[in-house]
Amino acid sequence: MRVGLLTREYPPDVYGGAGVHVEFLARELRSLVDLDVHCWGEGRTEGVVRHRPWSALDGANDALRTFSVDLSVAAAVEGRELVHSHTWYANLAGHFAKLLYGIPHVMTAHSLEPLRPWKAEQLGGGYELSGWAERTAIEAADAVVAVSGAMREDILACYPALDPGRVHVVHNGIDTTLYRPDHDTDALTRVGLDPNRPYVLFVGRITRQKGVPHLLRAVRDVDPAAQVVLCAGAPDTPEIDREFRDLFEELSRVRDGVYWIPRMLPRAEVIQLLTHAAVFVCPSVYEPLGIVNLEAMACGTPVVASRVGGIPEVVEDGVTGVLVSADEDFESGLTEALDAVLGDPDKARRMGEAGRERAVREFGWDAVARRTVGLYEEIVKQA
């Protein structure tokens, strides 16, 4: 089967969970189908075609620039038997290909525009366009993949015109041969961490969705013996960037051992940081699944995370970590949960071991790819 995988992010330009998903899914799909990846960027390599926004739109709203990439991708996928798009950045390209070539369009929903109203802060009127693109594509797609059961419920609530029979749950995966405990410490040394003190670790983008301001306020009152490491970059807007910087400076004044790493670290360094963390924290206010929690679990680290979206399908409360309700007491709940894990190293170790076992047992990418190809075959047969 000739498949076109359509995405904004693809290595080396990966900045979020959707990009991680596509990277590993593509790796496994290559042995199962004839795959071409179409993504943003420059140049072409074997099996990967990169597209850039039209130069005539330099400086224009990002939504318009995205649509220009979608047109380029749609023109380039002629000859594919099926296209599979990821995120609103690529969904319209898949929809155009479906109409133009009469081929099935499968789309994976990693998040939903109606549930991210803060994007209006980033895109302005472009948020109306991104929402239109997502709605147009999702309501016409031959199949919609939800990365969690909770995500499936959100999809059907946001888009009631969508036939529930076309929405399929295929969880995100994790490469547990790559994400596994690494007990070397050179990455910790480069950060400047004190090896004799435990640390709380956050890895993610600086966005409203990831709940970073909540975390910065919550860790003010966490056990002062713990260090705090924030691998946080790619702010959505200047406003959230300024808010983060102000909160970080305030946090640094009230406690020591606070480290901010504003750049994307190499994967090997992230794995070391995950391995040695006393606890990983995911304070998202919206999260369809949360691959980063799987990454932490695969490295044998207990997780404190918000009880939102698909996170409870990954983090088993009291077994692989602690879930915190994202209500009016969210920040104090985060503080309490982090202190509970930090204060009981033996229980934390058992949670980490259970998390590793769960990641290996239930979330391998090979199984995800096989389920995805099974869906492709079913859709093509029906077409």
Score class of each variant (00 low, 15 high):
S68K: 01
G59N: 03
F248Y: 15
P302S: 11
R50Q: 07
R30V: 13
E353D: 11
I291R: 01
P288Q: 08
D327I: 09
G47D: 04
R307E: 13
K381D: 13
S31M: 02
H214M: 03
R242D: 13
D246M: 04
Y15M: 10
P114Y: 07
E46D: 15
R27M: 05
V147I: 14
L265P: 02
L342N: 03
E81M: 10
M351W: 15
Y159I: 07
L178D: 03
Y199V: 04
T275G: 07
L323V: 10
L57C: 03
E243W: 00
R358D: 12
L99N: 01
G318L: 06
Y101I: 00
E378A: 12
V314F: 06
E313W: 02
Y259G: 00
P114T: 05
L323M: 11
P53A: 14
G125K: 02
T335S: 13
G125L: 06
L193F: 12
R8K: 13
M264G: 00
L265T: 06
D236Y: 10
A56E: 08
V203M: 12
M151L: 04
D182H: 12
A326T: 09
V14I: 15
D241A: 15
G125Q: 07
H38Q: 03
A187Y: 08
R245W: 05
V14N: 05
H110E: 06
V341C: 08
G310S: 06
V380S: 07
C39M: 03
G125D: 14
V229N: 13
L178S: 07
V314M: 05
G4H: 08
A133G: 08
G211R: 01
G41E: 09
N293Y: 02
A226D: 12
H21C: 04
A56C: 02
R255Q: 06
K381W: 11
K119G: 03
G47L: 04
A143I: 06
W118A: 12
A140S: 14
L273R: 04
D163H: 08
A348T: 06
A140R: 12
E46G: 11
D182S: 13
C39I: 02
T207M: 05
A18M: 15
L5F: 06
V222P: 13
S148I: 03
E153S: 14
A93C: 07
V229S: 12
V77G: 09
E113W: 07
F280C: 06
S111E: 08
A74V: 06
G94Q: 04
G310V: 04
H214V: 01
R242A: 15
A226V: 12
H86I: 03
M1L: 13
W40P: 00
F244A: 06
A140I: 05
F330Y: 15
L334C: 09
H38L: 10
R371A: 15
V270F: 04
A63K: 03
C158I: 05
D344N: 14
V144S: 12
E331P: 12
R220D: 01
L92P: 05
L215E: 13
T66N: 01
F67S: 01
Q382G: 13
T66P: 00
G333T: 11
V77D: 07
L115P: 00
V373P: 08
D221H: 15
V145K: 03
E113H: 01
G374H: 11
A218E: 09
L57I: 02
C299R: 00
V20N: 13
I291F: 04
V308K: 01
